[in-house]
C-alpha cells in the first residue's frame, strides 16, 4: 500500500454517516430507531477523530473515541430504560403520539 487514502475522503464518509444519522433522527417515529441513528452520528464523529489522529500522528483522537464510546454506552442504557418505562405507562412508544410528560 504505497499511497494511502487522503484525509478528506475519511472526513467525507464521516460527514455522510453523521448526516444520515440526523436524517434518521428527523424522519423516524420509532424511538429505538432514533437511538440507533444517534449511535450512527457518534460513529461518524469517532471516524473523524481517528482519521485526524492518524493524519497528525497523535494518540489524543483514540483517547477521545474511547471516552465517546463510554458515554454512548451509558446514554444507551439510560435511554433504553426510559423507553421501557414509557412503554410500561403509555403502552405506546410512537414519538408523534407521546406529546405530554404527564403519565
Amino acid at each position: 500500500m504505497t499511497n494511502a487514502v487522503p484525509l478528506s475522503y475519511y472526513l467525507g464518509i464521516s460527514g455522510l454517516l453523521f448526516a444520515l444519522g440526523i436524517l434518521g433522527v428527523l424522519i423516524r417515529r420509532n424511538p429505538l430507531i432514533i437511538f440507533m441513528s444517534i449511535e450512527l452520528m457518534l460513529n461518524g464523529a469517532n471516524l473523524a477523530f481517528l482519521a485526524f489522529s492518524n493524519a497528525f500522528h497523535v494518540l489524543t483522537g483514540q483517547i477521545f473515541v474511547f471516552f465517546v464510546m463510554t458515554v454512548a454506552a451509558a446514554e444507551v442504557a439510560v435511554g433504553l430504560a426510559l423507553i421501557v418505562v414509557i412503554f410500561r405507562t403509555k403502552h405506546n412508544i410512537d414519538v408523534d403520539v407521546l406529546n405530554s410528560l404527564k403519565g
Binding site: S8, G12, A19, F56
Partner: peptide, 20 residues
C-alpha cells in the same frame, strides 16, 4: 451534506495523506 461538502472541497483544502 451540501454545506459540509462545499466546506470540505473549497475552504479547507485538506490534502494530508494518511499514513499507510
Amino acid at each position: 451534506i451540501a454545506e459540509a461538502a462545499l466546506l470540505l472541497v473549497q475552504r479547507l483544502k485538506i490534502t494530508a495523506i494518511l499514513a499507510a
